[in-house]
Structure formats: C-alpha cells, structure tokens
C-alpha cells in the first residue's frame, strides 16, 4: 500500500495553467469589482507620481496657449535635487515644517488627552458638551483660516488685539501674522528660535490650526478611553493608587495604540498644511508645500517644483510606512 506512491501532478503549474484557473475560478468576477479602484490608483496616483519624478530630473517648463500646453523638458539628472540640498532656504523650509509638526503634535498629545479625559468625566451637560466640542472640526479649512485671520488681524480692530488693548495687556497692536522673530530683546534666544523655524506668524497659525484639529484628536482618544473597563480603575483605587498614577499606569498604556495611530494620521495631515498657511500668509511662511507650489506656479520651474513635491511625497511615504506597520501589527 505504502510502497506505490501515486504520481503527483507537477508542482509548478505553468503560467497558462494558473491563468486558466484564475479566469475560471469562482473568484474571477470578484477581481472585476477590484478593477475600477485599481485603475484609479494607477491612473491618478501612480502615473502622476512617476511623471513628477521624471519632471524633477529635468529643466521643465510649459507654455500654455489657448488652453493647449507644450512641455519642454531638458534632462539635467539630479541637478534639481542637488541645488535644493545646497540651498539654505530649503533647509529653513524643512526646519519650519518640522517645527510646525513637533509643536502641533506636542499640543495634541497634552491638550488633546486632557480634553478627552475631561469629556470622559461625568458632569452636567456632558452629552451636549461632546457635540459642541466637535463643531470646529467641521468648519472648512479656508473658513477657519479667514476666521483666525480676523482674530489675529494686526490692526487694533483685530479681535485679539482689541481684547488685549482693552484689558491693558499690550499698549499697541501686535501684527500676529507677521513672521517676525520672537523675544527680540534677547538676541541669542531670538536667533535660536528663528533658526528652528519658530516665529510669531508660525505660532499664531499653529493656534488657529489646533482650534480645528484638537477636537478630532480629543474625540478619537475619548473613543479609546471608553474601551477601558471601569474595573481597572476601581481595583487601582482599592490599592490606593493616586489619580496621576492611575492615569500613567492604566490610561496611558491602554490608549497608546489609539494615540499612536491618531498621531501618525495627524502627522500626515500636517504635511498637507498648505491651505491654512497659503490663505493667511501667501508665500510669507515658506514651508515645504508652499515652496513646491511657488516653484511651479509662481516661478514656472516645474522641474524644481516637482523635486520639492517628490521629496514631500517621499517623507510622507516614510511616515506612512510606520503608520501602516502599526495598523497591520494590530490587525493581521
């Protein structure tokens, strides 16, 4: 019985075989469902990305006449990237982008968790409070920009200046949206902050941005908080743990996964922080995304603009890699 092994079919099916099996299989039409999305992905994301890379390797300019453009693309190799990396203003833009990111994330971790913990307390009107807190997130970004533009207006009728003048906190109005150095009285500190990308306009814009984005961070963290069983806290209280200790040893570890993902999501969005800065400052605060836009659409050098945007894409994909790795470790 055991001595006569049945001749097994060849292990490696030919390509034709596999194709046939795929096409006749019951899953075949399922692939058809996938097709439209794949086509969109290839046509609208992958091809433009490759095209951007190609343009970034050239001295690309376009001439549009009567709605029809002609493109001239002179191959220069990595010249665009090299001159970017040698340009101090690129590094300044990178530092400003990083400053925006680090400070926003810091605020979101501290204030965002604080707001979530607050919303998780029991108090009168909690349900309506949660709804109200969510509203700023719904305000369109451009409207948010205009609103904070009015609040930070540099004249004495700017809302913030008006309040501070009337309370006698300041004597003359401050131009909040001017990218001026902070602490001009202390030169070394002022220079260090400017080097790191911190100036008055940057910090004002961070405040305006946080008004819109803190709610979603707080509410997602709240969703994480609500999954923590009550018994954990009761047990900790029986053991005599202080509120701070409960927070550090129960709350924080248990919302860590939610928090990581929220933070990576926000990091991605910060890379997109174009709308707010462009609306309020035009080209006054040249973070990377503003530089890419300016190179292409103000200076007409599409090659250089593509190089900047390709670098932005690259940075984004590196962050996306960590994000996805995190998601997959939990799910699959």
């Amino acid at each position: 019985m055991t001595s006569m092994p049945v001749e097994s079919p060849p292990k490696r099916a030919t390509l034709r075989h596999r194709l046939f099996r795929t096409l006749s299989g019951e899953y075949f039409w399922l692939y058809l469902l996938l097709l439209p999305s794949l086509l969109i992905l290839v046509a609208v994301i992958l091809i433009p990305m490759l095209f951007a890379f190609q343009m970034s390797l050239g001295n690309t300019s376009i001439v549009v006449l009567g709605g029809r453009g002609t493109i001239s693309n002179q191959w220069v190799g990595l010249q665009n990237y090299l001159s970017l990396l040698q340009n101090p203003s690129f590094w300044q833009a990178l530092r400003e982008t990083l400053y925006f990111w680090v400070v926003s994330i810091f605020i979101e971790v501290t204030v965002g968790i604080g707001m979530a913990v607050l919303m998780n307390q029991s108090f009168f009107g909690r349900r309506i409070f949660r709804v109200i807190v969510f509203i700023p997130w719904a305000i369109p970004t451009v409207v948010n920009a205009m609103l904070w533009g009015m609040i930070f207006d540099g004249d004495n009728f700017g809302a913030l200046n008006d309040l501070l003048l009337q309370w006698h906190v300041i004597q003359s109005p401050i131009v909040w949206l001017n990218p001026s150095a902070l602490f001009p009285q202390i030169p070394w500190l002022s220079n260090a902050l400017s080097y790191l990308g911190s100036n008055l306009a940057m910090n004002s814009i961070i405040v305006g941005d946080e008004w819109k984005t803190l709610p979603i961070v707080a509410i997602l963290v709240l969703a994480g908080l609500q999954t923590i069983p009550h018994e954990y806290y009761e047990a900790a209280r029986v053991e005599g743990a202080s509120a701070w200790r409960q927070f550090r040893q129960i709350t924080l570890p248990l919302i860590a996964p939610v928090l990581t993902v929220v933070l990576i999501l926000r990091t991605m969005q910060l890379m997109r922080a174009f709308t707010l800065i462009f609306t309020l400052e035009q080209f006054g605060l040249p973070v990377l995304s503003i530089q890419a836009y300016q190179q292409a659409f103000s200076f007409g050098s599409f090659g250089m603009g593509s190089a900047v945007s390709f670098l932005i894409g690259l940075i984004a994909l590196v962050i996306a890699y960590f994000y996805i790795k995190r998601l997959y470790r939990e799910e699959l």
Binding site: I45, F51, T60, R272, F302, G313, L317
Partner: peptide, 14 residues
C-alpha cells in the same frame, strides 16, 4: 496618505 500638494504639479502639467 500622500499629500495633495505632492501630486498637484503633475496633475496640472498632465
């Protein structure tokens, strides 16, 4: 997760 700004230039040119 790719920022719009990274794709807007090729979109325009294409």
């Amino acid at each position: 997760l790719l920022p719009t700004v990274a794709l807007i230039i090729p979109f325009y040119v294409l």
